[in-house]
Design a protein around this nucleic acid. Structure first.
Length: 465
RNA sequence: GAGGUUGUAGCUCAGUUGGUUAGAGCAUCAGAUUGUGGUUCUGAGGGUCGAGGGUUCGAAACCCUUCAAUCUCCCCA
């Protein structure tokens, strides 16, 4: 018998962990609801054609394909065809519907766009939705990266107003304050990046430039210079980029400088204005500026459907080394991919697995989360068992989380069980107690024990909530 | 796709230049203790040393192959 195992990059969640994860989810849910967002859920699987071509070439390779079933029923004559399809599949892992026509969802944004298009007659635009479900990526797992992980997204479609951007940034701000994670929210605009590629003389190389710039924090300016050279940017262009990247200071100062540098680019100027307006809305919405928010020209974001404001959240505590724990942006025509034109959307995503890791590291989970069962009743078997069940009924009706040890096991064993489960109270209905219609209540933390009526015991249990 | 590290009991790991019957702690079970847990003491069970091959009188250790886990780069959350 081989040892049991689970697939690479997946995890089991034990009770304590699930409680903490649910704390994160319920915190986010509360905030989403407070901002007027509505929940939706979509299937784990989408049609492969819904997903392919949406995440770039690299992204397509990382989509988990679902094998068509019924393959074993194929006739001998069809095997050759199947083999040929497999060859195609291996070299170009999509658009081969004979072998695979479904795939696990890669993120929540594309399924959402698909949802909007399919339900366009039912929903009232602008539509604000949130969604918290697992997604799958066929990536090589490493620290903080899994093949199955959860995303929490909030998006608004059907409105181009930058108020939406400001609201979403405000959600980030509220959420991480509530979760007690110190963060920096970096903000940039794809239009500014477009402007950047224009003023350095390579308007067609925006993607190359942004990929290189995105690494600034990691490899420094000299590294970025080399990368830009490799990607075909000449020295003249690099010098111009350097000027822009060197822009620093407060958000206001950066924006003022960028305005000067972007004079020659309409896109660049639009980008600056976009950021400026978003921050102004944010300040009004929050009764003042937040020093969490930081304009960052080098912020790029990998997904290629973003067209306007982009944002990324990183934990600002120096003790925590972790990539981004959230990100998002404006995508002007995502639903256009599915034939519904001119619907603009903007959204943010929370990486709750990483948020969990960060909170664990910072120790910011509330203490009381570890509590579960409040009281356990010792089982003496026979008539005592029936007495205990009646008591259990009363406890639960009174709202006390309680359980009865199901077997009349040795007293010692039952006590050890209660101890291991960290159950704070033990109820002991023995012969003497039953005779007097009472029960002994033992506080497992202090070791104190008293004999009470059942109602009195319930009162004590309720008092110490 | 490229590179590194590690595979020994349920878990965490020792195991000397290759040498008798592969060990410890934790966990589990039983007992000390038939209605009082955590601490303690005693005892027990638990192993294809990841797998396959090679070198050797002799391999957990050395060599080759393979599988798995894990980390870094790429990319991403």
């Amino acid at each position: 018998m081989s040892k049991p195992s689970i697939p690479q990059g997946t995890r089991d969640f034990s009770p304590e962990v699930v409680r903490k994860r649910q704390y994160i989810l319920s915190t986010l849910r509360q905030i989403f609801e407070r901002y007027g967002f509505q929940p939706i859920e979509t299937p784990s699987m989408e049609n492969l054609t819904t997903l392919t071509g949406k995440y770039g070439e690299e992204g397509d390779r990382l989509i988990f394909k679902v094998l068509n079933n019924g393959l074993h029923e194929k006739k001998e004559a069809e095997k050759e065809k199947l083999n040929a399809e497999w060859q195609t599949l291996l070299s170009k892992p999509y658009a081969t519907p004979v072998v695979t026509e479904r795939a696990l969802r890669y993120d929540l944004t594309i399924p959402f766009a698909r949802y909007v298009v399919m339900h366009r007659n039912d929903i009232a635009l602008p539509f604000r939705r949130y969604q918290m479900q697992p997604v799958w990526r066929a990536d090589r797992p490493q620290k903080g990266r899994y093949r199955e992980f959860w995303q929490c997204d909030a998006d608004v479609v059907g409105s181009t107003s930058l108020i939406n951007e400001a609201e979403l940034l405000s959600i980030y701000n509220d959420a991480f304050r509530k979760l007690q994670i110190p963060v920096t929210i970096k903000v940039n605009s794809r239009k500014l990046l477009q402007g950047l590629s224009e003023i350095c003389g390579h308007p067609d190389k925006m993607t190359d430039i942004t990929i290189a710039l995105d690494k600034l924090d990691k490899i420094g300016w000299s590294g970025v210079t080399a990368e830009l050279g490799n990607r075909g940017i000449d020295n003249d262009g690099i010098a111009k980029l350097e000027k822009v990247i060197q822009v620093s200071g407060t958000n206001q100062e950066q924006l003022a400088n960028l305005k000067g540098l972007m004079q020659e680019s309409n896109a660049g100027m639009a980008g600056v204005k976009e950021i400026e307006d978003t921050l102004a809305y944010f300040d009004s919405l929050n009764g003042g500026a937040s020093d969490n928010i930081e304009v960052s020209v080098s912020l790029a974001r990998g997904l290629n459907y973003y067209t306007g404001i982009i944002a990324e959240v990183i934990c600002s505590s120096p003790d925590v080394k972790m990539g981004s724990i959230g990100g998002g942006g404006r995508y002007d025509d995502l639903t256009g991919l599915f034939g519904m034109k001119d619907i603009s959307g903007v959204g943010i995503s929370f990486g709750i697995d990483r948020i969990y890791d960060v909170m664990e590291e910072l120790g910011t989970f509330p203490e009381q989360l570890v509590e579960g069962t409040k009281a356990i009743i010792i089982n003496f078997g026979g008539d005592a068992e029936l007495y205990a069940l009646g008591m259990l009924n009363k406890l639960r009706a009174a709202g006390v989380c309680s359980e009865l040890f199901p077997d009349a096991a040795k007293f010692d064993k039952q006590m050890k069980y209660a101890n291991k489960r960290s159950i704070p109270y033990v109820l002991i209905p023995g012969e003497e107690e039953i005779k007097n219609n009472k029960v002994s209540l033992k506080n497992f933390i202090t070791g104190e024990q008293q004999t009470l009526s059942i109602d009195e015991a319930i009162t004590v249990l309720k008092e110490n909530d």
